[in-house]
Design a protein around this nucleic acid. Sequence first.
DNA 1: TTACATTGCTTGCATTTTGCAAGTCATTGG
DNA 2: CCAATGACTTGCAAAATGCAAGCAATGTAA
Lengths: 143, 143
Amino acid sequence: MKLEFRCNCPFTSALDILGDKWMLVIVKQILIEGKETFKDFTESEEAIATNILSAKLKLLEEAGIITKTKKPGNRKSNLYLLTDKGLALTPLLVELATWSDKYLRDLHPTLQNEKGMDQLRNDKSAFAHILVEKYREKQAALG
Amino acid sequence: MKLEFRCNCPFTSALDILGDKWMLVIVKQILIEGKETFKDFTESEEAIATNILSAKLKLLEEAGIITKTKKPGNRKSNLYLLTDKGLALTPLLVELATWSDKYLRDLHPTLQNEKGMDQLRNDKSAFAHILVEKYREKQAALG
DNA sequence: TTACATTGCTTGCATTTTGCAAGTCATTGG
DNA sequence: CCAATGACTTGCAAAATGCAAGCAATGTAA
């Protein structure tokens, strides 16, 4: 499980890093669900196994999408945070959710339909912008 | 390899279908590289194995992203075409390419840098719009 | 019309990735 | 000090991916 590129196509190359079941789910959990520590991820709804989580966090770090630091004042907990490169995936995530909302309901009737869904439908670029802003505020509060 | 959803999250559910090495690559090849037949895909730069290709085309069809029909006037060749649901993935693909263009060049120096890249940087929603229009024209010409 | 090539697959098997359960090891709170 | 917690690793089973070969149904050229 290492970083390699199949070809020089920009679409395919993004998928060489992000194209699996977990990478973007982890980014989503950090950005939207406020997860920061290893433990946070293991307690998620999606229930990622710890060995996979460990491997994927390593890959995300190698790819420059997240950073791993120690939580200030705590030598036990690690802090996983998005870099700018990682935050720049926000529009991609928003497109994923938009597509699901519009086209996945027939295959998946119990798909979430409350929370920010109206806001997403109403103006997705504003939605993305707010997500990024909130995350930056949080980061500023930390460091 | 069947269609199942981990949870009700719209982000994660999209990845339950699209989150692997091949699904979006195939959509890209149809949309951007004009590929239509089984053979077209096997001749791609990305070199997908025929057994995987077969399985993924089946999944894409089950998910309602592509349709499989016979080429008119030819009982041998099949024609794989995007549905509206599949065409609606265009903005997602454009976001993938945009992210690659901006953030992947340090990891992947030989990443493509010509062709439509300027147009993509200049106005990505216009770029997406043009892709969709061109594909629809092509479809109209066929049927 | 018959041999040959092409298209669209499937099968078998090796390799890689994913998933689950359990165990390790350094903090840390009491 | 000692149990609990957080962050992992390890071992093994299951699933997905990759490679090579094979095969049946057209299509094509002599």
